[in-house]
């Protein structure tokens, strides 16, 4: 039991919380047809992360998060500026800003000698999920022991706070996010500036991306911004229900992804385990596939059946 608590549970928590943070915000990205914004933002924030790291000298710190948020705001403003001054289309402006800022991040990383620490390419891709351990856990009762909980890895605590922030953001601005995503013109005319709301959303996305990024890597971050939201969209026409379902899909991908990665190969008789972050993304993709096939209204099978009925009638 204590092995599960000390090694498996922290990884499951880390993976699930990272998935949840990205999965919830992903709903609005998908609805705004900005699904790849999560991907783009996770590149843009690199210079911010590195500068934050230089200030604070520790990974997973709030300084890195602040740097990331600032970098995201800077990127959005820069895109707007290039679009207006250069009179280029938004896609091109984004492409220029994202690649340039990522490259700038790489240069700062190289020149300041931070490259050797935690911010290397492998971690950026796959993250560091399995390294989360909770040595102070000995029994189940530690789960509600405040003192033991406070010794949870910092990255988990941070993700927990980030998730609370994101949930508060969505609950508080639910109506505003909804109207500015559906009809930006009406939103603007009613005084809910879609520009500011969009900027706030991007900043939250940057915060979620950074919090999740150091734990689970960019593959999972990108998958989680899109898959749970797209899965949930297949299952309901109600945005509130969709948000809840996407949360469930994120958490279940985190849980089952880790379990499959850690124990799946063992059950098949192999002596190794596979990357948990990669497996979580695979499970998220599988959930999406299942939803596309079997969803009650939008699933391929039900649509076929309805067509057949029409054909017979």
């Amino acid at each position: 039991m204590d092995i599960f608590l000390q090694f498996d549970l922290p990884s499951i928590l880390l993976g699930s919380l990272a998935a949840l943070a990205c999965g919830l915000l992903g709903n609005f990205l998908v609805l705004r047809k900005q699904a790849l914004m999560g991907d783009a933002i996770s590149h843009v924030v690199l210079p911010g992360i590195v500068l934050g790291f230089l200030f604070s000298h520790s990974t997973g710190s709030w300084a890195m998060m602040l740097g990331a948020g600032a970098a995201a705001i800077f990127a959005v403003l820069l895109i707007e500026l290039i679009r207006r001054v250069g009179n280029v289309e938004p896609g091109a402006a984004m492409g220029v800003v994202f690649t340039t800022m990522f490259a700038a991040g790489v240069v700062i990383l190289e020149r300041t000698g931070t490259a050797g620490v935690h911010l290397d390419v492998e971690h950026a891709l796959y993250g560091n999920l399995e390294s989360a351990i909770w040595l102070d856990a000995y029994s189940l009762s530690d789960l509600w022991n405040w003192q033991a909980l406070s010794t949870l890895p910092e990255s988990i605590q941070q993700l927990f706070v980030v998730n609370l922030l994101i949930i508060a953001f969505i609950v508080l601005f639910f109506k505003e996010l909804k109207i500015s995503s559906f009809d930006p013109l009406l939103s603007a005319s009613l005084g809910f500036s879609p520009k500011w709301l969009g900027l706030a959303l991007i900043v939250m996305v940057a915060v979620a991306a950074v919090a999740a990024f150091s734990a689970v890597g960019s593959i999972l971050v990108i998958a989680m911004f899109i898959c749970p939201a797209a899965t949930a969209r297949m299952l309901t026409d109600n945005l509130k229900v969709q948000l809840v379902l996407s949360g469930i899909a994120s958490l279940s991908a985190g849980l089952f992804g880790y379990l499959l990665a850690a124990f799946g190969p063992g059950l098949l008789g192999y002596e190794f385990s596979v990357s948990a972050a990669g497996m979580i993304a695979v499970v998220a993709g599988l959930q999406q596939l299942l939803a596309m096939l079997f969803a009650p209204h939008y699933g391929v099978i039900m649509r076929r059946r309805r067509q057949k009925k029409h054909a017979v009638a």
Binding site: L31, K33, K175, E176, K178, I179, S181, F182, D183, L185, L186, L190, G191, F192, R233, T236, D237, N238, L239, Q242
Partner: peptide, 20 residues
Amino acid sequence: AVDWDFPATAIDVVLMGLYG
């Protein structure tokens, strides 16, 4: 002007008129 695939019902859309 809008995406009609949006997860909203008719009354949701009318309610938006009251958001202000």
